[in-house]
């Protein structure tokens, strides 16, 4: 192995990001209760007291787009759908962006129930395997 080149994600970056890629984490303002999907230092209400919370796994598709010309490293998974998913966090609607998996692309509908799971996001022959959250349809 040639030690000078690291293929794929740089390990320190992977370690920094792994929790936010693999787990179902969001943030909530302790003062006004507003929930964020991306980390923030400060809430719109002015509070800096923000706690980490586990987000619900289930949600509904709001809209989607299909990627047919994927960036390098994602060829194996194409065509795939990226969707905006609405989660219900104790009555608050929180929208998150994410990839769908195990879905027939022509059957994605607004309001379709999906559930978060762990999947490979990208993996070369060498280097780190990148895992992350993808959403799969809930079979009724």
């Amino acid at each position: 192995m040639y030690m000078g080149i690291i293929e794929g994600t740089f390990p320190p970056r992977y370690r920094r990001e792994v929790k936010y890629r693999n787990a179902f984490v969001g943030w909530r303002c302790k003062k006004c209760g507003r929930v964020f999907y991306t980390p923030r230092k400060r809430c719109e209400c002015g509070s800096r007291e923000i706690e980490e919370i586990e987000l619900p796994r289930e949600g509904r598709v709001v809209t989607r787009t299909v990627v047919r010309n994927p960036p390098k490293g994602y060829e194996k998974y194409a065509p795939y759908a990226i969707a905006i998913i609405e989660l219900d966090v104790d009555g608050q609607k929180v929208r998150v962006l994410g990839q769908l998996a195990d879905v027939d692309l022509d059957k994605i509908r607004t309001g379709m129930r999906v559930r978060a799971t762990l999947r490979r996001i990208r993996a070369g022959r060498r280097g780190l395997i990148e895992y992350g959250v993808k959403r799969v349809p809930i079979e009724e």
Partner: peptide
Amino acid sequence: PGPDEDTATIAFEAAM
């Protein structure tokens, strides 16, 4: 397994 599935992702679903 789907193109994005492996032993870890299968184990994850079962473990959940």
